[in-house]
Design a protein around this nucleic acid. Sequence first.
DNA 1: CTTGGTGCAAATCGTTTGCACCGTC
DNA 2: GACGGTGCAAACGATTTGCACCAAG
Lengths: 156, 156
Amino acid sequence: MGHGGLRPEDIEHARTQLSNFLSRRGLKQTRQREAILEAFLESGGHMTSEDLYERVRPQNPEIGAATVYRTLKLFCEAGIAHPNHFRAGVTLYEHRGGHHDHLICVSCGDIVEFECSMIEQTQLEIAGQYGFRLTNHRHDLYGYCPKCSKDEEPNP
Amino acid sequence: MGHGGLRPEDIEHARTQLSNFLSRRGLKQTRQREAILEAFLESGGHMTSEDLYERVRPQNPEIGAATVYRTLKLFCEAGIAHPNHFRAGVTLYEHRGGHHDHLICVSCGDIVEFECSMIEQTQLEIAGQYGFRLTNHRHDLYGYCPKCSKDEEPNP
DNA sequence: CTTGGTGCAAATCGTTTGCACCGTC
DNA sequence: GACGGTGCAAACGATTTGCACCAAG
């Protein structure tokens, strides 16, 4: 179920973003970071460090898993990636930008993104009622996607 | 920031629920399961297996951590508990019942539950648009609670 | 007495870290 | 050259599992 990578302009933007972030912080531009960034951007988002490691490996066999973990964290700080914990024990990284709301198929794992400004608005109101100042949110809907709906029957 | 345990009637209901679940499945009613259930119900919800283990230990030094993990999973199947992954690496279990929507303070970790039927409704519509058949959802709003809002300043 | 439950310790899994070496600035 | 980056392997923390023993039905 691969879906939506980024458009060329987004990719270019991400490259610049990382570049700026690195120099601003006095960090180094390395071959590995470039390779990992490209692999991440080419992917559809929603991947684990492990996944990305596998993706990078063929072209760069010397890059270690630890570097991928470290780099992905760096991307999060740079605002290029965002970590998500859909299930126990794994961190899924997604492309930044857009709102992080998802429809997740509990059967095949497919992830679809959606956005609803009405809900966004309502969230702010609710937070206000409790005196909370919101920084971010997550809104995930779990269920069976159209394909899997046909296989799985409601009552076991 | 402790808050809301369950009312006596809810506790009674949970006991029955587990009891029924066990016999329905041909499983056994054990001293450990009772002890762990009581500890879980007495707590405010939103605890890790580890937390519960510590809570149970004083009165039942022989109960092992593995049993608590196993039992908590059982509670989930029985519909008494519900697992949540607010942050990487830990599973937080909460009391079942009510909708699982939360306001979470990123500073002190306080968790407030809320419910909004309008959002619930909208979720169904969105799922429908994508042909998904929903089974459950999670909706977490992160931010600073009133107390912590005073300390933390918006711009770093 | 039969089958599931428990406790312990060892095993796993994802992720992190210490350290010696390597490459960028 | 200095300091951050990398690779490897060992360390880690949460959770799971194999196994021999125990207890509920």
